[in-house]
Design a protein around this nucleic acid. Sequence first.
DNA 1: ACCTGAACACCGTTCAAGT
DNA 2: ACCTGAACACCGTTCAAGT
Lengths: 237, 237
Amino acid sequence: VPASTTGQESPRKRRARGSISAEEILQGAYDLVSEASLDALSMPRLAQRLGVGVTSIYWYYRSKDDLLDALAGRAMSEFVEEFTVPDDLSWDDHIRAFFHNYRRLFLEDATWSDLIALRASYTSDSRRLAARRIDRMLQILVSAGFPAEVAMSAYQSLSMFTEGSIAMARGAAARGRAGSAETGTPSDPELQVLPLLARPHPWSWGEDEDFAFGLENAIRGLRALLAQLSADGSGAA
Amino acid sequence: VPASTTGQESPRKRRARGSISAEEILQGAYDLVSEASLDALSMPRLAQRLGVGVTSIYWYYRSKDDLLDALAGRAMSEFVEEFTVPDDLSWDDHIRAFFHNYRRLFLEDATWSDLIALRASYTSDSRRLAARRIDRMLQILVSAGFPAEVAMSAYQSLSMFTEGSIAMARGAAARGRAGSAETGTPSDPELQVLPLLARPHPWSWGEDEDFAFGLENAIRGLRALLAQLSADGSGAA
DNA sequence: ACCTGAACACCGTTCAAGT
DNA sequence: ACCTGAACACCGTTCAAGT
């Protein structure tokens, strides 16, 4: 018995051949995640939002995983484009600006940085753009007197540090819901130096300050290394 | 028509009242994940393995999330117990041993460290044990002349660094499957310093070396800070 | 108090069509 | 070439019982 008079529960007409596109699907997925969350993205929900049969999506993306990869690429592009570092900074100020911005950008938008963290898929465009930024930092370090391999390792290890800092900050934020029975303070008499350690979440404290400390300390280490290298280079008297 | 003669597809008798326990379920889940993977852990599969009705699990764990928390706690306990640092090391050797061991332990067992990374749930026992290890390191740093707050921040930032290094190493490993169209080398003429950067996966290279570099650099930074602090303390001539 | 199957509301994906 | 619904094999979880 097909309903004919009132348009209630209209069963959605078949769409024309060229009426969907990979881009439209990707945009729909992006909007859906933006408005709701990553968990809210399911193939049926996305299809319904687009006014399309569920299976139609599979003509453009072989699987949900495929779609998520494309989505991560798109999000990554946005991050890369938003990311800037001022010109004409000394090498240490450049490092400071670079990694503070990096961290801030990812912490600002939890949803998308989660997706990126799990996939890390660059578009070739955004990869090239990111590479240019990194190359600029490497140039500055090399100009300051660091050998190229050292500059590269410095960048890499500072990335590790920043990524870890982001992950820990996000983890600490997610753990707002404290586990029921675990909130009591043990107050272990063996802990001698810092009673801080006896508290329930001792090592998720002062994320920002600890990140700043670690970054400054790394810069201090690099400065010492630079002095050491130039001392070696000018002959040991 | 109930099958009576041959025991084919025996429908599993109802189990007695005290025959299951939270511990048995947890152990079953642990074994299942160990033998297969984290993805293989579903409530039906676990129930079947235990010879229990699916819903029986829900009497002991309110949800799968609950069960995963308990599982993460158990895995964390094992990590904490396996983790040791030799006695009588200088402060920098202690740091080196501590974080190299930390990293190695997590990289050795991808399955469990994934689970822990997403949950980070300590048992109160393992928290106390971990706190004792950390406290020992802080004591050593304080003995070496670092103020307690500096020692704490040093520990925290080195943890961030190590966590990030673990995450990046695991991400690089997971990305063995290279994305189809993205493998070509762009060879951007703007890249001046390092042609390394034009390669497909430039910043997932030499994980171990970069970690070692970053750790040494942090230690160098701490050494410089220590010298600076003691110089300030003994009066500026 | 403990254990249970049936049932619900979802998934992602395949297939055999329709146009 | 593109779009589709029906169907499959799974999920996690709830409920109303059984003992």
